[in-house]
Design a binder for these strands. Structure first.
Lengths: 345, 345
DNA sequence: TGTTAGCACTCCAGCTCCGCGAGTGCTAAG
DNA sequence: CTTAGCACTCGCGGAGCTGGAGTGCTAACA
């Protein structure tokens, strides 16, 4: 069941040609490759075998072969020659990451645009979550008429805010008391712990210290809900799907674009709890509309913990090698940027 | 040069049929309309006249007529019968706006999705700017290593933040002094005024009060830059362009989608300093890719000042009447929501 | 003078037909 | 095991044909 070296050679040649040309590859075209020293007839025989084993398919008798999903999978698992990003992309990436930007959100957004223009595919970037960051300060700023803004700042400098409603006649003392309790108890606590065990303890503390218990509770609950904020999703180059010949069929393109629009669902395309590079080919994506697509993803980290994802969506016929290199480079560079950023230069 | 009532009747019939069917309208089809009591031959004569005057065109001899840009313009200016939103949309909208949401950003985002699903076109919503709001409080929260987060809260409860770099050895006193000066001078000032005349005055004040002048200036400049933040752009239903028959041509669709992706440029499609409803048909849009599109926009307000825009992008063949009603209703409802929101319930 | 029926004409859309070329599988020889 | 040769297959694109929808024009009618 294992492929002979020659079969592997032919399989990767087919895939690489097909990725470039987007058209079925014939034996004659393959014979022109430098590394392939056999006659078309020999290649035909091998291709017939590869087809029988399920690595190639024929759109119709007497046309060239195209890789099947199984073929791509084998290629990604066994034949991909690791390497470095190609020259053009390398320069582009270096250039990109030496630009000095210091808002995280902006960097992430620009990474998404950069990835899409570099790969000419659609990029998906999940902004860094702040689960591992710690509460630095909580503020409560009244804005009149029984309303206030609760603000939470993390040690990395992220700011989240939420609106809180009070009873109309709450006293300034009470507001201060609430803030004090919250800061006493919560500063230094990782965001990921905010919700869980602390809630009960805090509620109890607040009930002792603060007169307006319900109001205090409102604040507490808003603050804790910050944890539940969804990761922000940035999608770059969605229009690129239309430039892929496989999506010239408007129906398909539309179903993919619609999917991309519902930012929420996109999150689920990324494997949870997996940090390395992941390649989902065709039906390996559980979502129906992605049957002809490959989603390649990886993570980026802060202090050794993965905090976000970057990924590229394209047709199964994508340049696996190149995109893989680009993703890995970007992941590393983004990790480095975040580290620099959160330690202050 | 003025159109006779009968010509107007026929023009609007052509437009309404064409909007519905997306196919050239012939004299026979028109003759079946209830309001039109003439024979196809008469209609043909009138249509020939309308074509000569430039309100209709023929894709080719011996096919039905389609409205020209001039035709649409006349229709929008003179023939549109004002009315109310249709039943389905009305119910939908009422339902939508009775949902209780209290984050402005969320409302705006949802309005964008709602508009696109209701009109089956692409919606564009510019989030409310805060120029008319006033500074409520400025905070400066150190997060270690010569860095701090500057936070600005407006009286309406908007929160903006920016990162600031300090000299490593700045003293806590200095930070406090800076914040005090800023709050003294800026609380109550409208955001729109932040930049202009105050900057010089403040710099002078800071130079007197604060030891670390450069640091203070850094904060001041960051805070003032909040003014320049671009309005957030929400785009809903971009995939809908693909369902319009006129954009089955992949090239066109792609150029429009690419445009939509660069959020920034979209801002310029909205007329500055105009508050009512605006309709830009075809070439009236300065952007090349929108030659076959109509962009219909209006504003929403807070305290009588327009603070944001909502709009719908579709093919010139769009249901002007319906979309206009929907936009006007939404604008009013959004204005009302904002008022309620910013006065607290 | 305005309206309408009738008719010849135009042109597109969709169909079939056909030939070309790219590519295959098989066979037999090296 | 490899390769040259050959007959065969099949999609693609162009040519030619047809039906139908729609027009403009003319002549008759109110």
């Amino acid at each position: 069941m294992m492929l002979t070296p020659r079969q592997q050679l032919i399989l990767s040649a087919v895939i690489e040609d097909y990725v470039r040309m987007a058209e079925p590859v014939g034996s004659r075209a393959l014979a022109k490759h430098e590394e392939i020293q056999f006659s078309p007839a020999t290649i035909r025989n091998e291709m017939a075998d590869l087809e029988e084993m399920g690595y190639l398919t024929q759109p119709h008798t007497s046309s060239g072969r195209i890789p099947s999903q199984k073929g791509y999978r084998f290629y990604v698992d066994n034949l991909l020659r690791q390497g470095h990003v190609d020259r053009g992309a390398g320069a582009f990436l270096k250039d990109f990451f030496t630009k000095r930007i210091d808002e995280v959100e902006q960097v992430v957004r620009e990474v998404s645009m950069m990835l899409s223009s570099l790969t000419r595919q659609t990029s998906i970037v999940l902004g860094p979550n702040m689960y591992t960051e710690k509460v630095r300060k909580i503020e409560l700023i009244p804005i009149g008429a029984g309303r206030a803004v609760a603000i939470l700042v993390t040690d990395a400098g992220h700011v989240e805010n939420a609106h809180v409603h009070f009873s109309e006649d709450i006293r300034v003392d009470d507001v201060e008391a609430i803030v004090n309790v919250l800061n006493d108890k919560l500063v230094g606590v990782p965001i990921s712990k905010l919700r869980s065990n602390l809630y009960a303890e805090l509620a109890e503390e607040l009930s002792r210290t603060v007169e307006r218990f319900e109001d205090a509770l409102a604040v507490l609950s808003e603050v804790c809900q910050v944890t539940d904020r969804e990761e922000t999703v940035y999608i770059g180059g969605a229009a690129n799907v239309l430039s892929q010949p496989e999506f010239h069929d408007v129906e398909k393109a539309q179903s993919i674009l619609s999917l991309l629009e519902q930012g929420g669902t996109v999150t689920s395309w990324f494997p949870k709890d997996e940090r390395g590079l992941t390649v989902r080919i065709g039906a390996e994506n559980s979502v129906g509309a992605l049957q002809d697509c490959t989603v390649m993803t990886t993570t980026y980290s802060l202090y050794g913990h993965p905090v976000g994802h970057i990924g590229v969506l394209g047709p199964t016929r994508m340049d696996y090698n190149r995109i893989m290199q680009i993703l890995q480079y970007t992941s590393a560079a983004l990790t480095e940027f975040l580290t620099r950023w959160s330690t202050g230069i």
